[in-house]
């Protein structure tokens, strides 16, 4: 398998990457979503801007009450990070469930978010954690709340000439969290992924991957739970996906089961 021809450019800084993207092309981070689709010739960018070696995109640190994760951090970087394990175990737990070891070693959080696969794991994690996606474009930096970031199937609020640079995640003491995933047996993508963050005061945020065209926060479920009710039906108002492995009906059922399992895990 071979991709269509394209021009490979390597950026050494965010500024350079943004100026290269302005000329067209797609950002290449770990490439674990992009390159497979290009090999199948489902995707044919004219140019790839390799952002894999930009030092500014690396690194995981605390900034006040926020954990700041460089967009170029690999899933393995995050799964193995002592800091993430301490401050936001949800991310370490979730990252450890992505793909397989080789994928985790190359795939990055920024690349995964930009790709916005409806069944990827990161979207549910960042949504439940109320993260902010920081992007840089020709007009400088802007911050997009994760709840505004995912706009549809493989669609995000990211413009073609923008690059995700970091993910800022609020960290609060006493919170509990979990990611419960029912994997599609062949691809190991989420048929249902349920991420929950429960604050010290008992308020929960609940997000799903794999269930709908786009990852989503289930605000109905949250409202019910946060007012002391039963969770109620999952995915109300969402268009539920169906495929060879899970019909709409079964997917909704799985989502309810996994929600319950997640709630038990943070009880």
């Amino acid at each position: 398998m071979i991709t269509y021809p394209f021009e490979y450019k390597r950026a050494s800084s965010v500024a350079e990457a943004v100026s290269m993207l302005a000329e067209g092309g797609k950002a290449l981070s770990g490439g674990h979503s992009l390159i497979p689709s290009m090999k199948l010739r489902l995707n044919m960018p004219d140019a790839l801007v390799d952002v894999g070696r930009i030092p500014e995109l690396k690194g995981i640190s605390m900034d006040g009450d926020e954990l700041v994760i460089g967009a170029g951090s690999t899933h393995a970087d995050i799964a193995d990070s002592q800091l993430v394990k301490e401050k936001l175990s949800l991310f370490a737990e979730g990252a450890a469930h992505i793909g397989d070891p080789a994928v985790r070693s190359r795939g990055t959080i920024g690349g995964s978010l930009a790709h916005a696969d409806p069944s990827a794991d990161w979207p549910a994690l960042v949504l439940a954690a109320n993260a902010t996606i920081v992007v840089t474009g020709p007009n400088g930096e802007r911050s997009i709340p994760s709840t505004d970031f995912f706009t549809g199937l493989f669609s995000t609020a990211l413009n073609d000439d923008e690059l995700i640079t970091k993910i800022r995640v609020p960290v609060s003491a006493g919170s509990k969290s979990t990611y419960q995933k029912f994997a599609q047996p062949a691809s190991r993508y989420a048929l249902v992924g349920c991420a929950i963050v429960k604050q010290a005061d008992g308020q929960v945020s609940v997000a799903f991957s794999g269930v709908s065209d786009a990852p989503f926060r289930d605000t109905d479920v949250e409202k019910n739970l946060n007012s002391g009710q039963e969770a109620g039906p999952v995915g109300k108002g969402q268009s539920i996906m169906s495929d060879n492995f899970a019909s709409e009906k079964y997917r909704v059922h799985l989502a309810s089961v996994y929600l319950q399992r997640a709630l038990e895990a943070v009880a």
Binding site: P118, G152, L153, F154, Y189, D213, S239, M241, D243, E248
Partner: peptide, 10 residues
Amino acid sequence: QRVISGVANT
């Protein structure tokens, strides 16, 4: 196949 229903919805 994996995303076909999502495509239809979209």
